[in-house]
Design a protein around this nucleic acid. Sequence first.
DNA 1: CCTTTTAGATACCGATTGGTACGTAAATGC
DNA 2: GCATTTACGTACCAATCGGTATCTAAAAGG
Lengths: 218, 218
Amino acid sequence: MAERGRPRAFDRDEALRRAMVLFWQRGYDGASLGELTEAMGINRPSLYAAFGSKEALFREAVALYDATEGAPIQEKIEQSPTARQAVEAVLRHNARAYVRTDVPRGCLVVLAALIGTPEHEDLRCFLKENRKGAEDYLCQRIARGISDGDVPATADPAAMARFYTTVNQGLSIQARDGASMEVLDSVVDAAMVAWDGLTAGTPSTKSTARAGQNNPSI
Amino acid sequence: MAERGRPRAFDRDEALRRAMVLFWQRGYDGASLGELTEAMGINRPSLYAAFGSKEALFREAVALYDATEGAPIQEKIEQSPTARQAVEAVLRHNARAYVRTDVPRGCLVVLAALIGTPEHEDLRCFLKENRKGAEDYLCQRIARGISDGDVPATADPAAMARFYTTVNQGLSIQARDGASMEVLDSVVDAAMVAWDGLTAGTPSTKSTARAGQNNPSI
DNA sequence: CCTTTTAGATACCGATTGGTACGTAAATGC
DNA sequence: GCATTTACGTACCAATCGGTATCTAAAAGG
């Protein structure tokens, strides 16, 4: 029952990991097949035999990214005793992860294919769904906080998840722009300052500047 | 003293505007010369004669973007009576601008060249400096708020500018992901909830979860 | 041994990329 | 009218893109 033909001479998992890092660094379009095969230590036909296509390789790379980089985040979300601690733990974790020196800065899912040619629209949508999934996951954790009693029932979990997801995505850009861990942490500090106010109730009704924003007389 | 040779048959400003929109939509790499010339209504040699190169065209497009899309923001920052109103006005403005249907969603400066090949590193740096400039501008406005007396002297303008810039950049991603104006506004709501806490003093010292983030026993 | 099966390596494919050479058209200066 | 200057349009360039055909090497099954 062993494999029949000539055995593969490279470690598929390791090759995928290296491809993931290159996609992470350069983005989908920015990583050419030449660079990919060189980084993976294999030649082109071997890549196609093992992964099917550049796009399929990318999707596998994203799956690997989710499994490896996403795992500790998922763990922090689940195991934090309160929703507030869960959200802060995620942001703190990323403030550290995004400045690691052994991998590219920022989040692959956020950065690798934000815009580009219409040809790769489905790929961008794939990443968009991934981002949406992360936001929904955070939303559910905050909602759980209401059930658990550590978050007031006046809170709007969806709005809070959107806000902290937006900050989190902004952190990827800041990290790419060279922000230090301390700087990213200060952004997280600021975001967490809003927590109590956010759980207190819907802030939309308190806003002073929303109405008439499109009125040129103001 | 009039121009000597054959007059240009196209409107250079209009052609540049169309190029800007295409770069805005697809990013630098995603906008090919073929698409650019088609959108601009000119042929390739005319583009090179009028703009020099694709990269020079892009830089001019960014300058035009700053001049047109950035002008109302600058005006809001300068003319708002308080720093708080200035920051909120910028975010509200963008929450509306980023969902316009006549132009691509999100901010060109944030989205057009975040990552890619090492070949265009200087171009990404160019946009990075542009982003940095916007943050510095916001920082100065908040510092002015301290001088004016509408912001407590305990506030940290640099940290606040970083936070609101991070949120602002996150808004571009949310807008690309399909967020409605209402959704973007709710993110702005949340960000503004933090204001009073941020001006009250440095939140870093109050954080509970920052220390020992790398300690697996916590 | 020989056949079968799978992988590695070279060399190639058509398409597209950013960028130009070159001949022609349209204006001004004299 | 004629030379000069600038722009337009076609047709092209080398380089690179993602993807493969083909041949050889290395394993298992018989």
